[in-house]
Design a protein around this nucleic acid. Structure first.
Lengths: 228, 228
DNA sequence: CTTTTGTATTCTGTATGCAGCATTTTCTGT
DNA sequence: ACAGAAAATGCTGCATACAGAATACAAAAG
């Protein structure tokens, strides 16, 4: 999609209060984005010398970032042959969605118990914004807000381990969902499901929210299965 | 627990068919074990120079392994201060067990559908062996077989993503469970639950297996809560 | 013309070296 | 003697350098 551009190293000092972002984190995020957005397509070898030069970074931190991503499951380490962007089969995607479904069902239940009213209001705000984008037909922003909402609900559950696992799976799936372009009717259905979600969350209806989230992800498979 | 010993580099050739295990993998496993077994206790700084010398490895591959473990959640990266072994609070452990419970419930359902008879027989064999160890009072082997059984059931589910997530959580919890020494009556209860599990699995009773697995992990929290 | 083997190149894997930041120790002033 | 500042030490973060493995290419044999 994009050109491979040199990593902009956060210049020292500047207006920012303090530089917290080490190169490692920046690199990890950058590579993750490159994989998700398709700059590095599945099966591509991550050429250390070349890639490092393009990003303006030496091989050492690059290799460390790659190892990190390998643990995240985005790339695969082949002994003596470096790293390649992991390729997901249709079954892999289905499997991931199955687990994600279970996790979000759990998140829904926990969120209804643990969430603050303010937290719920924030999700509502995200939702309203997303609907606005939907009506305008802004797919990219819709997509991003959609992800944010799911993450936000998981956050409301106040369970770090759950958030971790959810985050990993969502990241792995981003690449897929980013591509999946459903038709208008399926899109409308997805929005309707989101509507139900918000209502259930605001009512703190555990069973309902859990059920809708589960259904939503079941349908997600239907929506993306064609594109994998 | 143990001394920190130099990493035995799998000598090339040898009887083994071919050397698949790169240094990276060996290092990761070794460090993981050191953390789990308590050689590196929570809060300990992973001193690159020192640790590398003790293991007989230079800093570069060691750093890569540490980054990998950081992504797994076993260590925490502190900017400009290296890595420290992550410390889990009681809530963290509870949260992990909650997620693990949900995942194993799912695994139980899927396993009943996907498992081969041979696969189920293998779990039964593990179970019988575990019961034998229990009767002898061999806590360590009991513990290991216990873990193996849970992993085996997850494997039967034939869902790679599920296995991944389960593996990560189980690894994080190993350190805790390794310590938790329940009394005789709780131990007996745990074994009884495992008995139920096997029966349900052999009957391919989805609902029952799922229920038992869930209950088993709920009780697991009761068993370990004192020791965290 | 195909296949096989030897060689050369390229890339990964590991070690080492240097610079910057954090912390600790020491020195100085009150 | 104590507080604060300055220097010194130790460690991490990044870059570079070197060695070994894998692959690609070419030449020679069938």
């Amino acid at each position: 999609m994009n050109e491979i551009t040199p990593l902009e190293r956060r210049a020292d000092g500047g207006p920012g209060p303090i530089r917290r972002t080490a190169l490692h984190d920046t690199l990890v995020s950058h590579l993750r984005d490159m994989i998700i957005e398709g700059d590095l397509s599945p099966g591509t070898r991550l050429h250390e010398g070349q890639l490092g030069e393009q990003l303006g970074v030496s091989r050492t931190p690059l290799r460390e970032a790659i190892k990190y991503l390998a643990s995240e499951g985005l790339v695969e380490l082949v002994p003596s042959r470096g790293a390649v962007v992991k390729r997901f089969s249709a079954k892999d995607v289905h499997d991931m969605l199955t687990v994600l479904q279970t996790l979000e069902e759990l998140a829904g239940k926990l969120a209804c118990e643990a969430a603050s009213d303010a937290g719920i209001a924030e999700v509502r705000a995200l939702h309203d914004e997303m609907v606005r984008r939907y009506k305008v037909g802004d797919r990219l922003q819709y997509y991003k807000l959609n992800q944010q909402i799911h993450s936000a609900i998981v956050q409301l559950a106040e369970n770090a381990a759950l958030a971790d696992m959810h985050g990993v799976l969502q990241t792995r799936l981003k690449r897929i969902r980013f591509i999946g372009h459903e038709g208008p009717e399926k899109w409308a259905a997805a929005v309707a499901e989101h509507d139900e979600m918000i209502v259930a969350l605001e009512a703190r209806d555990k069973a309902k929210l859990s059920e809708v989230l589960g259904r939503h992800l079941m349908n997600a498979w239907e929506r993306v299965r064609a594109s994998v």
